[in-house]
Simulated assay, not measured.
Amino acid sequence: MLNPEVAPGAFTELDRFVFESWGYLVIPDVLTTAEAEECYDASARLHAARDKEFGQLGRGYETEPSLERLIDHPAVLPKVRGLFGDRFVLQSSWNTMQPAHGGTGGWHQDGSGAYDFGRLGYPVPLIQLRASFLLTDQTRPGTGNMELIPGSHRSTVPLPADIRAARGDTPIGHVICAPIGSVLVFHNGVWHRTYRHDGDRDRYTAHYVYSPPWVRPADRLTNSADFLERTTPMRRALMGEFERPDAPYGAGYDPLPFD
Results as ranks from 00 to 15, higher is better:
Arg130Gly: 07
Glu243Gln: 14
Pro213Trp: 02
Glu35Tyr: 00
Gly9Gln: 10
Thr232Glu: 00
Met97Lys: 14
Ser93Val: 05
Pro123His: 11
Asp41Phe: 01
Thr63Ala: 12
Ala218Met: 14
Ser66Val: 06
Leu129Gln: 04
Tyr204His: 13
Phe133Arg: 10
His47Lys: 08
Leu14Ser: 05
Ile180Pro: 02
Ala166Val: 05
Tyr61Met: 07
Pro74Cys: 07
Arg216Leu: 14
Thr231Ser: 10
Tyr210His: 03
Val185Asp: 08
Phe84Thr: 12
Leu31Thr: 10
Ala114Trp: 10
Thr136Met: 09
Trp107Asp: 00
Arg220Lys: 07
Asp29Ile: 12
Arg235Lys: 14
Arg59Thr: 14
Leu14Lys: 08
Ala10Met: 15
Arg230Trp: 05
Cys177Thr: 15
Thr136Pro: 01
Ala48Glu: 05
Asp254Thr: 04
Thr139Gln: 13
Pro74Met: 01
Val209Thr: 15
Arg50Ser: 11
Gly144Cys: 01
Val80Tyr: 00
Leu221Ala: 14
Gly9Trp: 05
Pro99Gly: 09
Ala75His: 10
Leu120Ile: 15
Ala42His: 02
Leu184His: 09
Gly60Leu: 05
Ala7Arg: 13
Ser112Phe: 12
Ser152Lys: 03
Ala75Thr: 03
Ala7Leu: 15
Arg201Ile: 11
Pro213His: 04
Ile127Met: 12
Gly85Tyr: 04
Pro257Cys: 10
Asp110Pro: 03
Glu13Leu: 15
Cys177Gly: 02
Leu90Trp: 02
Thr136Glu: 15
Glu37Arg: 03
Phe17Trp: 12
Val30Asn: 04
Trp191Asp: 11
Gly113His: 04
Gly60Thr: 01
Arg236Trp: 10
Asp116Gly: 08
Pro158Cys: 03
Asp200Glu: 12
Val124Gly: 01
Ile176Cys: 11
Pro8Ala: 09
Glu20Met: 08
Pro160Met: 02
Arg196Phe: 06
Thr139Glu: 09
Pro160Phe: 03
Gly199Tyr: 09
Leu221His: 15
Phe242Cys: 12
Thr156Tyr: 13
Asp200Leu: 10
Arg235Ser: 14
Ala225Gly: 07
His153Pro: 01
Pro125Gln: 14
Asp15Cys: 14
Asp15His: 07
Leu77Phe: 09
Leu83Ser: 09
Trp214Lys: 06
Cys39Trp: 07
Arg164Ser: 02
